[in-house]
Design a protein around this nucleic acid. Structure first.
Lengths: 132, 132
DNA sequence: AGTCCGCCTTCCAGCAGGTGGAAGGTCAAG
DNA sequence: CTTGACCTTCCACCTGCTGGAAGGCGGACT
């Protein structure tokens, strides 16, 4: 199977698929003409990568998950530990962004937004005023 | 004022302060010995940068905000427009992360996390099952 | 047989936003 | 006079790709 087909099937750009090969996440065969030749197994691995990346796992985490994915002997506890850690990170990230949002919302709400130079947003960013 | 002092006062690493100079966000004086010499105005600008970066503005957005910050004639409407756009982006980001969280929460909740090889997380990532 | 287009290959460069480290100059204290 | 903390520049590296150039290959149409 050529890279273009695999790209469609996996939902990943061809460039990204080659990049994943560069960093050792997949190892497709080569044909006589030099073209990469992918198996269905490769497609599964790439879909797996696409999903886990879009769920916020780093490439290194994906590498771990992928080795567990391919290991029939793996213990689900290992996988759960990785996922749980990532869940905590995502929750922290959400809380952080909510803090930013509240701060910005406050600044935007108190700004007249007209042609006068007074601006609580600038003041807030400069630390001249406290957006409590 | 030396860069080390400014680093403490602004909450930014010295490396980052030099980098901000490289990309033209600040322009400190130089002393005879080659050391950078910062004014209180520089410190204010750097604190401003630190705050706006940590509020999720990109460096380019910070550059805009900084030019408005230094411009007594600016109209608050300009600033409000930038902040409002950024607010929308932050809200989209939060929603996206909440989606990830829900998905991962579901996967983690349905995984026994023991030493058996069955693992709904791996299944979910591989697309073999739907964590709806 | 020639030509076209689209696919494939490699390689090199660059994006954001810094961070790390080497190699060396400077300054104040002991 | 040496030590140690600070400062300087420069160059490389990080993540996770993405873009583009230059060239080979494959099948269709004429």
């Amino acid at each position: 199977m050529n890279i273009g087909t695999v790209s469609v099937k996996s939902g990943l750009p061809a460039k990204t698929i080659r990049y994943y090969e560069d960093i050792g996440l997949i190892r497709p065969d080569r044909r006589d003409n030099g073209y990469r030749d992918y198996s269905m197994e490769d497609v599964h691995r790439l879909r797996f990568l696409q999903r886990s990346r879009s769920l916020g796992f780093s490439v290194e985490e994906c590498r771990q998950l992928l080795s567990l994915y391919g290991d029939g002997e793996r213990e689900s506890a290992e996988v759960k530990a990785i996922a749980t850690t990532k869940l905590g990170e995502i929750e922290r990230k959400i809380a952080e962004l909510q803090g930013l949002r509240d701060m910005l919302q406050h600044l935007v709400a108190t700004c007249h937004g007209d042609h006068r130079p007074e601006c609580p947003i600038i003041d807030g960013l400069s630390g001249r005023a406290h957006a409590h």
